[in-house]
């Protein structure tokens, strides 16, 4: 997996949901929270927790988590979590491994595939570039927002 910083920063480069975008960023971290982080506390848990890092595991967990919110926003919460997690899994697809790493169609098959562009530990080299790109995009977004507010005032 790329590091979480790469995942979170890359979330700034795409068009984020308008409502409750915080859940989109939680979604970006969700696969690693479920399928990797427990390994810090229990080293041998890899196979047991692996389903948390698969599309089916993320789907099930996002559905369960959505019930921790009010009914009116549950579909938005669910969609945002899934959007974030999908981007996370897509970025993971771009890594190269020596052994099979991600079981995309689990539990139907253990077959694994990837588009091998970089090693998992090389993702930290992207962070400075992603930081700059995210900063530029944030400035552009803020300017657009200010312009819209100013246009609105002039219109009224």
């Amino acid at each position: 997996m790329p590091d979480l910083m790469t995942h979170v920063l890359s979330g700034n480069l795409v068009r984020r949901p308008h409502r409750y975008r915080e859940l989109f960023f939680v979604g970006l971290a969700l696969p690693d929270l479920l399928g990797r982080m427990p390994m810090i506390f229990h080293k041998n848990s890899y196979w047991f927790i692996s389903p948390g890092h698969t599309p089916i595991g993320v789907l099930l967990m996002a559905y369960a988590i959505s019930f921790l919110f009010k009914p009116a926003i549950r579909t938005t919460v669910f969609k945002n979590l899934l959007l974030g997690a999908s981007l996370h899994l897509f970025e993971d697809l771009l890594q190269r491994h020596i052994t099979d790493a991600y079981y995309w169609f689990f539990p139907f098959t253990w077959k694994s595939f990837e588009i091998p562009l970089f090693w998992p530990d090389q993702s930290i080299y992207f962070i400075p570039f992603l930081l700059v790109a995210a900063g530029i995009i944030q400035i552009v977004r803020l300017r657009r927002k200010r312009r819209r507010v100013a246009d609105g005032r002039r219109g009224s």
């Binding site: 196979w47 047991f48 948390g52 099930l60 559905y63 369960a64 959505s66 019930f67 539990p107 253990w110």
Partner: peptide, 29 residues
């Protein structure tokens, strides 16, 4: 996504996920 059977809607996906974890824990190694 309604509140009807809310606890079942939370418990069921978690149970399925737990079952998948057990399956992966046995089959994976």
């Amino acid at each position: 996504f309604s509140d009807k059977l809310r606890w079942l809607k939370i418990a069921l996906p978690l149970l399925i996920l737990a079952a998948l974890c057990v399956y992966s824990g046995i089959k994976g190694p």
